[in-house]
Protein backbone atom coordinates (compact mmCIF):
# COMPACT_ATOMS: atom_id res chain seq x y z
CA UNK A 1 0.00 0.00 0.00
CA UNK A 2 1.38 3.40 -0.84
CA UNK A 3 1.42 6.20 1.61
CA UNK A 4 -0.49 8.44 -0.73
CA UNK A 5 -3.77 6.57 -0.96
CA UNK A 6 -3.95 5.34 2.60
CA UNK A 7 -4.89 8.56 4.40
CA UNK A 8 -7.66 9.37 1.92
CA UNK A 9 -9.33 6.01 2.42
CA UNK A 10 -9.05 5.97 6.20
CA UNK A 11 -9.98 9.53 6.95
CA UNK A 12 -13.75 9.40 7.63
CA UNK A 13 -13.64 6.39 9.94
CA UNK A 14 -10.55 7.62 11.71
CA UNK A 15 -11.95 11.03 12.31
CA UNK A 16 -15.08 9.62 13.91
CA UNK A 17 -13.01 7.38 16.12
CA UNK A 18 -10.85 10.24 17.27
CA UNK A 19 -13.77 12.48 18.19
CA UNK A 20 -15.82 9.71 19.85
CA UNK A 21 -16.25 10.33 23.55
CA UNK A 22 -13.71 8.44 25.65
CA UNK A 23 -16.29 6.31 27.45
CA UNK A 24 -13.91 4.58 29.77
CA UNK A 25 -12.38 7.82 30.99
CA UNK A 26 -15.80 9.31 31.61
CA UNK A 27 -16.91 6.24 33.53
CA UNK A 28 -13.86 6.34 35.79
CA UNK A 29 -14.38 10.04 36.44
CA UNK A 30 -18.03 9.56 37.35
CA UNK A 31 -17.18 6.63 39.61
CA UNK A 32 -14.48 8.68 41.31
CA UNK A 33 -16.78 11.56 42.10
CA UNK A 34 -19.57 9.21 43.15
CA UNK A 35 -17.36 7.44 45.68
CA UNK A 36 -16.04 10.77 46.89
CA UNK A 37 -19.30 12.62 47.33
CA UNK A 38 -22.05 10.01 47.74
CA UNK A 39 -21.51 9.60 51.50
CA UNK A 40 -21.50 13.37 51.90
CA UNK A 41 -24.64 13.56 49.80
CA UNK A 42 -26.36 11.02 52.07
CA UNK A 43 -25.52 13.12 55.12
CA UNK A 44 -26.93 16.23 53.49
CA UNK A 45 -30.06 14.42 52.33
CA UNK A 46 -30.83 12.81 55.69
CA UNK A 47 -30.27 16.06 57.53
CA UNK A 48 -33.55 17.12 55.95
CA UNK A 49 -35.31 13.84 56.82
CA UNK A 50 -38.64 14.20 58.57
CA UNK A 51 -38.16 10.93 60.46
CA UNK A 52 -35.46 9.73 62.81
CA UNK A 53 -34.45 6.91 60.48
CA UNK A 54 -30.99 6.97 58.96
CA UNK A 55 -31.94 4.59 56.16
CA UNK A 56 -35.38 5.64 54.98
CA UNK A 57 -36.03 9.13 53.69
CA UNK A 58 -39.56 10.16 54.48
CA UNK A 59 -40.30 13.73 53.44
CA UNK A 60 -38.32 16.92 53.94
CA UNK A 61 -38.25 18.94 57.13
CA UNK A 62 -35.96 21.22 59.11
CA UNK A 63 -36.64 19.23 62.28
CA UNK A 64 -33.00 18.27 62.94
CA UNK A 65 -31.77 21.78 62.35
CA UNK A 66 -34.25 22.99 64.95
CA UNK A 67 -33.04 20.24 67.26
CA UNK A 68 -29.46 21.36 66.78
CA UNK A 69 -30.22 24.98 67.61
CA UNK A 70 -31.93 23.84 70.81
CA UNK A 71 -29.01 21.62 71.84
CA UNK A 72 -26.92 23.74 74.23
CA UNK A 73 -24.10 21.24 74.38
CA UNK A 74 -23.63 21.26 70.60
CA UNK A 75 -24.01 25.05 70.43
CA UNK A 76 -21.36 25.49 73.13
CA UNK A 77 -19.08 23.23 71.11
CA UNK A 78 -19.73 25.20 67.95
CA UNK A 79 -18.91 28.40 69.81
CA UNK A 80 -15.72 26.92 71.16
CA UNK A 81 -14.63 25.62 67.76
CA UNK A 82 -15.20 29.03 66.19
CA UNK A 83 -13.25 30.67 69.00
CA UNK A 84 -10.37 28.20 68.74
CA UNK A 85 -10.27 28.55 64.95
CA UNK A 86 -10.19 32.30 65.15
CA UNK A 87 -7.46 32.48 67.77
CA UNK A 88 -5.39 29.79 66.02
CA UNK A 89 -5.74 31.68 62.76
CA UNK A 90 -4.61 34.98 64.25
CA UNK A 91 -1.80 33.44 66.28
CA UNK A 92 -0.39 31.28 63.52
CA UNK A 93 -0.57 34.17 61.03
CA UNK A 94 1.39 36.44 63.33
CA UNK A 95 4.09 33.86 64.02
CA UNK A 96 4.02 32.22 60.59
CA UNK A 97 4.43 35.45 58.61
CA UNK A 98 7.24 36.56 60.91
CA UNK A 99 8.94 33.17 60.55
CA UNK A 100 8.59 33.24 56.75
CA UNK A 101 10.12 36.73 56.59
CA UNK A 102 13.00 35.58 58.76
CA UNK A 103 13.58 32.41 56.76
CA UNK A 104 13.69 34.21 53.41
CA UNK A 105 16.04 36.88 54.68
CA UNK A 106 18.38 34.72 56.71
CA UNK A 107 20.02 32.46 54.20
CA UNK A 108 22.77 31.38 56.58
CA UNK A 109 23.20 27.90 58.01
CA UNK A 110 20.85 28.66 60.90
CA UNK A 111 18.21 29.90 58.48
CA UNK A 112 18.23 26.78 56.33
CA UNK A 113 18.14 24.57 59.42
CA UNK A 114 15.13 26.47 60.75
CA UNK A 115 13.53 26.10 57.32
CA UNK A 116 13.84 22.32 57.52
CA UNK A 117 12.67 22.05 61.14
CA UNK A 118 9.67 24.18 60.21
CA UNK A 119 8.53 21.48 57.76
CA UNK A 120 8.57 18.69 60.36
CA UNK A 121 5.02 19.30 61.68
CA UNK A 122 3.69 18.86 58.15
CA UNK A 123 5.01 15.30 57.89
CA UNK A 124 4.67 14.21 61.51
CA UNK A 125 1.56 12.02 61.95
CA UNK A 126 -0.98 14.20 63.65
CA UNK A 127 -1.61 11.62 66.32
CA UNK A 128 2.03 11.89 67.38
CA UNK A 129 1.74 15.67 67.57
CA UNK A 130 -1.50 15.26 69.55
CA UNK A 131 -0.11 12.79 72.07
CA UNK A 132 3.07 14.83 72.42
CA UNK A 133 1.10 18.00 73.07
CA UNK A 134 -1.06 16.22 75.66
CA UNK A 135 1.98 14.78 77.43
CA UNK A 136 3.62 18.20 77.44
CA UNK A 137 0.59 19.84 79.04
CA UNK A 138 0.16 17.03 81.57
CA UNK A 139 3.86 16.96 82.35
CA UNK A 140 4.04 20.68 83.00
CA UNK A 141 0.84 20.59 85.03
CA UNK A 142 -1.21 22.72 82.70
CA UNK A 143 -4.86 21.61 82.91
CA UNK A 144 -6.39 20.76 79.53
CA UNK A 145 -8.85 23.44 78.45
CA UNK A 146 -9.84 25.64 75.55
CA UNK A 147 -6.49 27.42 75.92
CA UNK A 148 -4.49 24.22 75.46
CA UNK A 149 -6.40 23.41 72.28
CA UNK A 150 -5.61 26.90 70.99
CA UNK A 151 -1.91 26.55 71.80
CA UNK A 152 -1.70 23.15 70.12
CA UNK A 153 -3.55 24.34 67.02
CA UNK A 154 -1.39 27.46 66.68
CA UNK A 155 1.77 25.37 66.87
CA UNK A 156 0.42 22.99 64.29
CA UNK A 157 -0.73 25.72 61.86
CA UNK A 158 2.41 27.88 61.77
CA UNK A 159 4.04 25.58 59.22
CA UNK A 160 1.19 26.00 56.75
CA UNK A 161 1.31 29.77 56.93
CA UNK A 162 5.08 29.77 56.60
CA UNK A 163 5.12 27.42 53.63
CA UNK A 164 2.56 29.54 51.76
CA UNK A 165 4.15 32.88 52.62
CA UNK A 166 7.75 31.86 52.13
CA UNK A 167 7.46 31.27 48.39
CA UNK A 168 5.48 34.48 48.05
CA UNK A 169 8.08 36.53 49.91
CA UNK A 170 10.91 34.97 47.92
CA UNK A 171 9.10 36.07 44.74
CA UNK A 172 8.88 39.70 45.89
CA UNK A 173 11.23 42.18 44.30
CA UNK A 174 13.81 43.02 47.00
CA UNK A 175 14.28 46.41 45.41
CA UNK A 176 10.74 47.42 46.45
CA UNK A 177 11.63 47.50 50.11
CA UNK A 178 14.88 49.27 49.30
CA UNK A 179 12.89 51.82 47.33
CA UNK A 180 10.73 52.50 50.38
CA UNK A 181 13.81 53.08 52.53
CA UNK A 182 15.33 55.17 49.79
CA UNK A 183 12.23 57.37 49.99
CA UNK A 184 12.68 57.92 53.71
CA UNK A 185 10.94 54.95 55.30
CA UNK A 186 12.54 53.15 58.22
CA UNK A 187 12.97 49.39 58.00
CA UNK A 188 9.76 48.85 59.97
CA UNK A 189 7.78 51.35 57.88
CA UNK A 190 9.00 49.66 54.71
CA UNK A 191 7.69 46.34 56.02
CA UNK A 192 4.35 47.81 57.03
CA UNK A 193 3.76 50.10 54.05
CA UNK A 194 5.20 48.08 51.20
CA UNK A 195 5.94 44.43 51.98
CA UNK A 196 2.86 43.49 53.98
CA UNK A 197 0.40 45.05 51.50
CA UNK A 198 2.12 43.10 48.73
CA UNK A 199 1.65 39.92 50.77
CA UNK A 200 -1.95 40.62 51.74
CA UNK A 201 -3.59 38.24 49.23
CA UNK A 202 -1.42 35.35 50.44
CA UNK A 203 -1.99 36.27 54.06
CA UNK A 204 -5.75 36.29 53.60
CA UNK A 205 -5.66 33.03 51.70
CA UNK A 206 -3.68 31.32 54.45
CA UNK A 207 -6.04 32.80 57.04
CA UNK A 208 -8.98 31.12 55.36
CA UNK A 209 -7.10 27.86 54.99
CA UNK A 210 -6.02 27.79 58.65
CA UNK A 211 -9.52 28.63 59.83
CA UNK A 212 -10.95 25.72 57.85
CA UNK A 213 -8.20 23.29 58.89
CA UNK A 214 -8.49 24.09 62.58
CA UNK A 215 -12.28 24.19 62.62
CA UNK A 216 -12.64 20.59 61.51
CA UNK A 217 -9.48 19.27 63.13
CA UNK A 218 -10.24 16.27 65.32
CA UNK A 219 -7.06 14.47 66.37
CA UNK A 220 -5.18 17.36 67.93
CA UNK A 221 -8.35 18.73 69.49
CA UNK A 222 -9.24 15.33 70.95
CA UNK A 223 -5.93 14.99 72.79
CA UNK A 224 -5.67 18.52 74.08
CA UNK A 225 -9.23 19.50 75.01
CA UNK A 226 -10.69 19.63 78.47
CA UNK A 227 -14.04 18.03 79.34
CA UNK A 228 -16.36 20.98 78.99
CA UNK A 229 -16.73 22.56 76.51
CA UNK A 230 -15.39 20.26 73.81
CA UNK A 231 -14.62 21.27 70.24
CA UNK A 232 -17.42 20.46 67.81
CA UNK A 233 -15.51 17.64 66.09
CA UNK A 234 -14.82 15.95 69.43
CA UNK A 235 -18.43 16.48 70.57
CA UNK A 236 -19.76 14.87 67.40
CA UNK A 237 -17.43 11.92 67.86
CA UNK A 238 -18.60 11.38 71.43
CA UNK A 239 -22.23 11.72 70.38
CA UNK A 240 -21.84 9.09 67.70
CA UNK A 241 -20.55 6.58 70.19
CA UNK A 242 -23.99 6.51 71.78
CA UNK A 243 -25.79 5.96 68.47
CA UNK A 244 -26.04 8.37 65.57
CA UNK A 245 -28.56 11.15 66.05
CA UNK A 246 -29.89 12.80 62.86
CA UNK A 247 -28.91 16.12 64.50
CA UNK A 248 -25.34 15.20 63.61
CA UNK A 249 -26.36 15.16 59.94
CA UNK A 250 -27.62 18.72 60.29
CA UNK A 251 -24.37 19.80 62.00
CA UNK A 252 -22.35 18.10 59.27
CA UNK A 253 -24.33 19.83 56.56
CA UNK A 254 -23.85 23.22 58.18
CA UNK A 255 -20.10 22.60 58.49
CA UNK A 256 -19.99 21.58 54.86
CA UNK A 257 -21.76 24.76 53.81
CA UNK A 258 -19.39 26.82 55.91
CA UNK A 259 -16.33 25.11 54.39
CA UNK A 260 -17.59 25.65 50.86
CA UNK A 261 -18.15 29.32 51.62
CA UNK A 262 -14.61 29.63 52.99
CA UNK A 263 -13.05 27.90 50.00
CA UNK A 264 -15.02 30.09 47.62
CA UNK A 265 -13.75 33.10 49.55
CA UNK A 266 -10.17 31.86 49.33
CA UNK A 267 -10.47 31.42 45.58
CA UNK A 268 -12.08 34.83 45.18
CA UNK A 269 -9.39 36.70 47.12
CA UNK A 270 -6.85 36.97 44.32
CA UNK A 271 -9.54 38.25 41.99
CA UNK A 272 -10.55 40.88 44.50
CA UNK A 273 -6.95 42.09 44.35
CA UNK A 274 -7.00 42.27 40.60
CA UNK A 275 -4.65 39.37 39.94
CA UNK A 276 -5.26 37.21 36.97
CA UNK A 277 -5.61 33.47 37.44
CA UNK A 278 -6.43 31.57 40.58
CA UNK A 279 -4.39 31.24 43.69
CA UNK A 280 -2.80 27.94 44.51
CA UNK A 281 -3.54 27.51 48.20
CA UNK A 282 -0.42 25.52 48.89
CA UNK A 283 2.13 27.56 47.02
CA UNK A 284 0.36 30.87 47.49
CA UNK A 285 1.17 31.83 43.92
Amino acid sequence: MTGKTAPARRTPARRRAATRRPRFAIAVTVLFFALLYLPVGVVVLFSFNARKSLTVFDGASLRWYRAFFRDDLLLDSLGMSLQVSFVAMAGSLLLGVALALGLVRNRGRLGSLAGLVMLVPLITPEIVTGVAAMLLFKGTGIPLSTTTVMLAEITFSISYVTVILRSRIAALNPETEEAAMDLGATRRQALRLVTLPALLPSILASAVLIFALVFDDFVLAYFTTGVDPQPLSVRIYSAIRFGVQPTINAVGTLMLAGSIALIALALAIPRLFGRRGGLDLLSGE
Binding site: E175, T176, A179, D182, L183, P197, A198, L200
Partner: peptide, 13 residues
Protein backbone atom coordinates in the same frame (compact mmCIF):
# COMPACT_ATOMS: atom_id res chain seq x y z
CA UNK B 1 19.63 61.13 47.69
CA UNK B 2 17.04 59.11 45.80
CA UNK B 3 17.36 56.16 43.51
CA UNK B 4 15.68 55.04 40.31
CA UNK B 5 15.99 51.27 40.48
CA UNK B 6 16.66 49.00 37.56
CA UNK B 7 13.40 47.11 38.17
CA UNK B 8 11.66 50.46 38.92
CA UNK B 9 10.46 48.84 42.20
CA UNK B 10 7.09 50.59 42.04
CA UNK B 11 4.59 49.92 44.81
CA UNK B 12 1.98 47.87 42.99
CA UNK B 13 -0.76 48.32 45.59
Amino acid sequence: VNTVFQSYALFDH
